[in-house]
Design a protein around this nucleic acid. Structure first.
Lengths: 232, 232
DNA sequence: ACCTGAACACCGTTCAAGT
DNA sequence: ACCTGAACACCGTTCAAGT
């Protein structure tokens, strides 16, 4: 008997591509070696030919996302260059909702990760920042380098929870207003009064650019001052 | 026969305390329901009397850490109040190295979490920030609210990797210098030339306060300008 | 030499059986 | 009514046996 029809031969590329697709449709928590192998019509151990282990698989998945970032435009001044790079990273991360968490969980710096960091650092250096100040401002940018900031106020709707009665809702709201008056104020200001799910109406893109531009302005002020650290 | 000597009866407190201790000594990845039960001399299912599931266990562990934050001092002006609160949170998080990761992985806002956020928001409001601006600046602070910023440059030493020969080290360093010249500059500036482990010598506390004060200065500038969002 | 099935040492959680 | 052992449906990875 002839062997059954074979799938196209595996490759690291095909494995990573499949992992990214799987994460896109089923979430990153669904990406296990076993499930991924099944998705590829392959025995789990076959994957270990192309990725050393699961950590390396996740590194590779992050690399796939970062490869979607637009290349740097050398014609831009430092502020526009950093802004463009960071907002492009944001577009890539928004395309893959699992990417935030994956990036934050990674401790290993792959060449792709280092490349993005080096490109950003280069933009600051060309803009007249000292190496020292470049180091500090990149720390200050934090995860905004990767196009996201922490989701401070997000809470996924508990779809399974029994919807409370109107009376219960009012009691909960009253207790919330008493215990956390300032969070309530904030939520009202952010949503214009529509509080269906506290914090749900927050405009993430606005918050991202607000903080980004605040930081970039602060950086520029230090740059023109010729700031340098006066540590011991 | 008398039953064997019993351990002190369980309680949510005792379970959480044990989980925090276990995470402190063995890392958060060692905290499994089964391992934790074993540590308490108890059958795994016994834990489910005191925590609904593992997610709630992690929520409780975060709460234990946040409970270590100093209470707010009403005598301070807004800038000093926010600074004190955030730096106190930092002390708590530094005492429990697993707390960063645990906080970042949580999506559920417990009363303790909401309480800390409300307290910070209150400091801004009392300082003359509008509810709207308070919302934005808290987003801009991001995870600094919890006393940490992402570890951009950290890489744990690969203790298991065979130490490369001197020649190999030099070749690696040369390739690194060529591919990532700006990261190298930054590392040199940060460590004063000692590059035993790129990025290892970075003063995290300094970076944290640098970014914190940069942000607080920016916030103050917006406050005195009477900034308000001009969204459609 | 290559490939892979079974096995190992784990998970979180359900559930029925036992007291 | 309470408690809990066994079981279920998973993990990542090793390793020896098979071709």
């Amino acid at each position: 008997m002839a062997p059954p029809a074979r799938r196209a031969p595996l490759s690291t590329e095909r494995v990573l591509r499949a992992a990214v697709d799987l994460a896109d449709v089923a979430g990153v928590e669904a990406v296990s070696m076993r499930r991924l192998a099944q998705e590829l019509g392959v025995v789990p151990m076959a994957l270990y030919k192309h990725v050393a282990n699961k950590d390396q698989l996740l590194d590779g998945m992050v690399d796939v996302v970062l490869a979607e970032i637009d290349p740097a435009d050398p014609a831009l001044d430092w502020q526009a260059a950093v802004r463009a790079r960071v907002l492009s990273a944001r577009q890539a991360v928004l395309r893959h909702p699992w990417a935030r968490q994956a990036i934050e969980s990674r401790t290993h710096r792959t060449p792709t990760v280092l490349g993005h960091m080096d490109s950003l650092a280069g933009a600051f250096r060309r803009g007249g920042f000292s190496a020292d100040l470049t180091h500090h401002v990149m720390h200050a940018l934090g995860n905004r380098i990767w196009g996201f900031s922490p989701e401070l106020f997000y809470e996924p709707p508990a779809a399974d929870a029994a919807t409370p009665s109107v009376a219960e809702q009012q009691a909960l709201a009253a207790e919330f207003a008493e215990r956390y008056p300032h969070i309530l104020e904030i939520a009202v200001a952010a949503t214009g009064g529509d509080l269906s799910g506290v914090g749900g109406g927050c405009d993430e893109q606005f918050e991202f650019e607000f903080a980004l531009d605040l930081l970039l302005d602060g950086f520029d002020r230090l740059r023109v001052q010729g700031w340098s650290s006066r540590r011991s």
